[in-house]
Design a protein around this nucleic acid. Structure first.
Lengths: 239, 239
DNA sequence: CAGTGGTCTAGACCACCGA
DNA sequence: CGGTGGTCTAGACCACTGG
């Protein structure tokens, strides 16, 4: 008996909206229990699957927690979480309608230090690929990219023309991404970084350390330095 | 908590795993079409709802895109997205097993400048609450918090003992969060900030600008400054 | 034990796309 | 038009929680 097809908001959406509203207005506070699926079923006149989907999605959004055998509860909202996207810098720049270019400062195979070999998960201190690039937006340097690549993950890495194809782009095609971790911190640029970014050595920078995993290999570790005056990360969260 | 998977993967999980594997190994490349729900139904011997759930979750994870009437396709994986959590600093510090304390430098009502009134969405330049505090972890300053609060959203804000309850905590209880946006950038601290953070004025810092919305009100705008040497944001992404 | 959520089925109607 | 995904139902069995 598919009732009236809600061409505006689907039934599970109505259930979600109802619960969201009660949470966001504070009627239900963190820790409070949310009505059970069977109660909501009756209340909205929908099937259990529909209620279940609504609650499952709310859990995915971090608004409620669910415990089998126990119930559904308003989550402790003591955190704001949002999605931080890390994208190929070429795409980002082009999307802004600007011109992306790159200068290649280094593209070579090197012998890995013991430290680096460990970071890349290499048993022996074999060769690794090392590239250093400057990315420019409309001719202005916006990123210093210092990257080490595991040859096992992308054997043809050095054949790439990095003025046309970014390392990130090549790696995404060559070594399908399975995992990545990063950290963002503030730092002052080294003399070399400052010179190539064309900033004063006292200017604060954002540094992102990024480590990517492809299958069994640690594919690459990179240090990306952005001039603080020309770059920021932004994000948004909606309940 | 979520580390013990069911002894057998649920049916929808098997479908997801199958598709994920084909994407992560590069057998299916971005833009390729994924078998339709009806094909996967037969292939796995499950109902359409089960296949649908698998595909819907994969879309939520950003691995595939779906177009009604057209089909399901492997997403362009040219972005890494991950969840950046912004949490109450008190919780973070305590969770690390450390002691959180706070120094209150300012807690007062002020007349909003025209600029600030606009930022907070106040029609007139009425009073706003202004607090400045230093958060310390085991006695070491880790965050300078300069915050303006809309009195309409949290009228009792200034009654709070900020050495015991963080502004974030009070606001989350008083003004249920509906929306937040932030940006992270690198900067050098002002003389005042450097002094209270007990760092040199030339040390790079992370600055987060955060704006929170509660219902119809812009509840608060804050500038949070972290010494670069003592703080970083980290995140992780898994395919 | 009764109640909860976790999963699953075998249908169904609809809106949309491309040929 | 046939095929696709979007949604929904009215059942069902199971595992887990709590008293």
């Amino acid at each position: 008996m598919a009732s009236i097809p809600p061409r505006v908001l689907p039934a599970y959406g109505k259930v979600k909206a109802f619960i969201k509203k009660r949470i966001s207005t504070g009627i239900w506070k963190p820790g409070d229990s949310v009505p059970s699926e069977s109660v909501l079923m009756v209340q909205f006149g929908v099937s259990r699957m529909t209620v279940n989907r609504a609650l499952r999605e709310l859990m995915g959004e971090g608004l409620v927690t669910r415990v089998q055998g126990s119930g559904t509860f308003v989550a402790e909202l003591h955190r704001i979480s949002s999605t931080l996207s890390i994208r190929d810098i070429h795409e980002v720049v082009v999307e802004r309608g600007h011109i992306h270019t790159a200068r290649v400062l280094l593209a070579a195979a090197e012998n890995a230090s013991a430290d680096l070999a460990r970071t890349l998960g290499l048993s022996s201190g074999g060769p690794v690929f090392h590239t250093i690039l400057i990315h420019l937006e409309n001719g202005v340097p916006i990123q210093y990219e210092d990257r080490y690549v595991n040859p096992a993950a992308a054997p043809r890495y050095l054949e790439t023309d990095f003025t046309r194809i970014t390392p990130t782009h090549h790696l995404l095609e060559e070594a399908p991404l399975t995992e990545a971790s990063y950290s963002i911190e503030a730092c002052l640029p080294s003399a070399l970084e400052a010179k190539h970014l064309e900033i004063k050595s006292g200017e604060a920078c954002l540094a992102m350390m990024r480590r990517t995993v492809s299958g069994a290999n640690i594919a690459s570790v990179a240090r990306l330095v952005y001039p603080g005056s020309r770059y920021s990360f932004a994000g948004k969260f909606q309940a």
